[in-house]
């Protein structure tokens, strides 16, 4: 019953300061629009780095005279003990030849003549690291181990890309937090205005003994409604936009290796997160304003 009253009061507040409501809701919309784009990007980047990291491994060539059980065991232990190493896998001379043949497809058949005692390829250890970023340092350390002929890995380009994606993600997080704070601030200002137009009502409520929660409620609802109003457009843009983009690009980005996340349920999550942020931002913004006002006098 009271809830109806609180909502009525909240709507009256929204309407009374129509211009302010619209401007702070649209500021919230800008902030959330960015947040929405960031969420979709971030989840896709997660996917991309995941698949890139899968493909990045260190290829450690072993001298032929170390390619026997005992020295191999020694090398294996030394590599495994390096910090950041996830997995070490042996690849025999024959395995290496198979891979070489496979990379050339049909034409690879000509390498079949290598098979046997005269195989010029080296046996190798394939090393996976826990993170892509420390691959260079680990390669360096492996190269110092006795019996290693050559260490190579998936190219600096890949690592640069991964570092860049990492960087984008960090900047994104900072921007999301920053923009949320700005949104909180804007809503809190709008609520301040709403409070100042009702100072007399609040004073009367306080003298007759209305509880703080009762006085606070309409303003908090007002703040949440402003937040939600601001989230409508970003939710539409993010969901419809991503579904459209996904269809238009055929589910991949730039190259076949960057497979985009399917829009469902990604867009639902995104809409949920945006609405959630809107509610929280509205709640905090209004709560701060009213509480500060109520604390100001007894």
């Amino acid at each position: 019953m009271n809830l109806i009253r609180h909502f009525r009061e909240a709507f009256m507040g929204l309407i009374r300061h129509g211009a302010m409501t619209v401007s702070s809701a649209s500021a919230v919309a800008y902030a959330l629009l960015f947040v929405g784009i960031f969420i979709i990007m971030s989840i896709n980047i997660e996917q991309i780095t995941f698949s890139v990291e899968e493909s990045v491994q260190i290829h450690v060539k072993i001298y032929d005279n170390f390619n026997s059980e005992e020295p191999l065991g020694l090398i294996y232990t030394q590599i495994s003990e390096i910090e950041g190493v996830l997995d070490v896998e042996y690849s025999s001379k024959d395995d290496e030849l198979d891979k070489l043949i496979a990379t050339y497809g049909e034409d690879g058949k000509i390498f079949e003549s290598y098979r046997g005692v005269g195989n010029p390829l080296r046996a190798a250890y394939l090393v996976k690291t826990k993170e892509g970023s420390n691959i260079a340092a680990i390669s360096q350390r492996i190269s110092y181990i006795i019996g290693i002929e050559k260490v190579s890995y998936g190219g600096t380009g890949t690592i640069q890309l991964m570092k860049m994606l990492d960087y984008i993600r960090t900047v994104g997080y900072i921007l999301v937090i920053g923009l949320s704070i700005v949104a909180v601030f804007l809503i809190s200002n709008t609520i301040k205005l709403s409070i100042s137009s009702r100072i007399k009502e609040i004073a009367i409520m306080r003298t007759v003994g209305a509880k703080n929660g009762f006085i606070r409620m309409p303003f908090v609802i007002e703040g949440i409604l402003i937040g939600l109003m601001g989230s409508i457009l970003p939710i539409l843009v993010a969901t419809v936009g991503y579904i459209y983009l996904y269809e238009a690009l055929g589910g991949v980005f730039l190259a076949q290796m960057f497979v985009l996340q399917s829009p469902y349920p990604l867009v639902y999550y995104t809409a949920g997160i945006l609405a959630g942020i809107a509610v929280v931002v509205g709640l905090i913004g209004s709560f701060v304003s009213v509480t500060r006002y109520l604390r100001w006098q007894r």
């Binding site: 007399k200 009502e201 004073a203 009367i204 306080r206 003298t207 007759v208 003994g209 209305a210 509880k211 703080n212 604390r295 007894r298």
Partner: peptide
Amino acid sequence: RHSKVPMYRRNIGVVFQDYKLL
């Protein structure tokens, strides 16, 4: 305490010179 003031106020009524009506 600040939060207890409202419950106390329900025991009293206050009338002001300037009425304080809406």
